[in-house]
Amino acid sequence: MSGHPKILAGAFEVLRKDLLIEWRTRARLNALIFFSLATLLLFSFALGPDSELLRKNAAGYYWLGILMASVLSLGESFRIETENLALDGLRLIPTDPRAVFLGKAFGNAVMLWLLSLIVLPVMVALYDVTIREGVAQLAGLLFLGCLGISAPGTVYAAIASNARARDVLLPLLLFPVLLPSLLASVKATGLIFEGDPMLQLRSWVGLLASFNVLYWGLGFVLFPKIIEDD
């Protein structure tokens, strides 16, 4: 009865619902875009007008901008679930908690990915970056990186949304855990910007993919423990 197809079907419905909500509240997404743009601008202000430095570290600033925005968007994605105890309602329909995890985590990844793509041209202009290895590769890599943020992000946002001081707690818990995938994302993105003469890109992407497998597996197994109340 509750085999894998059912989990995937449930996950798909949860994903659809989250994207639908995002679409109906576009103002929130807009705010998020401006937030990450402001973050990118702040980096260039804080570092002064050294364009060489900015270009060299562009990948790092870019991912930091995405990371900052991710905390807000992850928090928001669980605010809608705590309102009216909607997450309880979802559980009791019934929806498999693992399906909730897959749907929400994938939805969060898609949102972050869209955000990063929208911000991309501004970042390129602001930091004077050339994308040497192709935009398609970059888009794929960005998506992989966003998946790496969203899996632990969804687990931690579910926890933080029910605790006191959740706005402080989420980044405090999340940022250090995200470091490995963030480092891999930055390195790989940097190689796409600067060119990849030593063919290191493959191994960084492979590393990022392995982190993804690990975090998605952990989230899949552990998420039910968080939202089931027993």
């Binding site: 632990p152 687990v155 931690y156 926890i159 029910n162 605790a163 818990l173 250090p176 855990v177 470091l179 490995p180 480092l183 891999a184 390195k187 590393l207 982190f211 690990l214 952990l218 552990l222 423990k225 968080i226």
Partner: peptide, 25 residues
């Protein structure tokens, strides 16, 4: 208890991963 156990496991699994990634980085 439950939530901190989940966080504890995520953290512990992350430590060796972190070590290698920083090293490679």
């Amino acid at each position: 208890a439950t939530w901190s156990a989940v966080v504890g496991i995520f953290a512990a699994v992350d430590i060796p991963v972190l070590w290698f990634s920083v090293k490679w980085w």
